[in-house]
């Protein structure tokens, strides 16, 4: 959780009055969601590792599924939220940076979830297929999705004003989302080592043991709550970062003005060679 130090009185500017009064990103709402998420994750552990049965072919390794599948679904959701927020920023009249921060926060969580999907998927692959990785359609497109959004996060950090950041990342966020159907339907479009979808398929036929399906459902609920909790905290901490950055600029400006004033005084009493050359050597 991010906290902001109280503003220094000597550099007080009008903008600082916009700083949030709270010093933490937590609210009553996030605490409740956090507690419910922890309970749901406890349920996931109980059902995923305990109550659900082993699989006929995969044996105990089927339990990896209860993390592998929910994390990629939540990553899909996260990237869709990024795209929608990006569109809201670009096409709304107000151009609120709140949409931009929601897009960025959601992409960060999505990338983390895809990383989890890939990591636990490789373990499952080693146990079931006999290999950690193969360049089949599903794995390859998922890898592409992963690096694309790492690129998106890098673009967000290229510098410039908050508005510049928002505009260029919004365009990228709306383009990158087309990879999601590519990933999801890759197993239908091409022959792949990866199996086709059991639950999220279009034929409405779920060939899965009841308790396994329920454990998967618990996983989806738990990771959804975790996503919401992370989103709330991350968007708030990003808002604070943006404010802090602006305040930092104001302070830097004030310091430079003071420097200039000092130099002006020094220049009148000292030879030019002793003049401070702040920033001019870059």
């Amino acid at each position: 959780m991010t906290t902001i130090e109280p503003a220094k009185a000597e550099h007080d500017t009008a903008r600082q009055s916009a700083l949030p009064s709270q010093r933490s990103t937590a609210t009553r709402g996030t605490r409740i969601i956090g507690i419910v998420a922890v309970v749901a994750l406890g349920w996931l552990v109980a059902f995923g590792l305990g109550f659900s049965p082993a699989d006929r072919d995969q044996d105990e390794s089927v339990r990896i599924l209860y993390v592998h599948v929910p994390t990629i679904w939540l990553a899909y959701l996260a990237f869709v939220v990024t795209a929608v927020s990006s569109a809201m920023y670009l096409f709304s009249k107000k151009k609120s940076l709140g949409w931009d921060r929601a897009a960025g926060a959601s992409a960060e969580i999505g990338v983390t979830f895809v990383a989890v999907t890939l990591a636990v998927g490789a373990m499952w692959g080693r146990l079931t297929w006999g290999v950690f990785w193969q360049w089949d359609a599903r794995l390859t497109t998922t890898a592409l999705l992963f690096v694309t959004y790492i690129g998106y996060l890098a673009v967000r950090r290229l510098g410039g004003s908050h508005e510049q950041r928002a505009k260029r990342s919004a365009v990228l966020g709306m383009i990158a989302v087309v990879e999601i159907p590519l990933v999801h339907f890759s197993v239908k479009m091409w022959r792949s080592l990866h199996q086709e979808a059991t639950v999220a398929n279009l034929d409405g036929d779920t060939k899965m043991d009841g308790l396994m399906l329920f454990s998967l459902f618990v996983g989806v609920i738990a990771f959804t709550l975790l996503y919401v909790w992370l989103m709330l905290h991350r968007t708030r901490s990003m808002a604070m970062e943006d404010l802090l950055e602006e305040r930092g600029l104001d302070e830097a400006l004030a310091v430079r003005r003071a420097e200039a004033a000092e130099t002006a005084t020094a220049a009148t009493s000292a030879p030019p060679t002793a003049t401070m050359k702040t920033g001019s050597d870059s």
Partner: peptide, 17 residues
């Protein structure tokens, strides 16, 4: 020189087996 085992989209409890 390499054998990969495909898994179907079916998940069956070991008890049913």
């Amino acid at each position: 020189d390499r054998v990969e085992v495909k898994h179907s989209d079916e998940y069956v409890s070991v008890n049913d087996e």
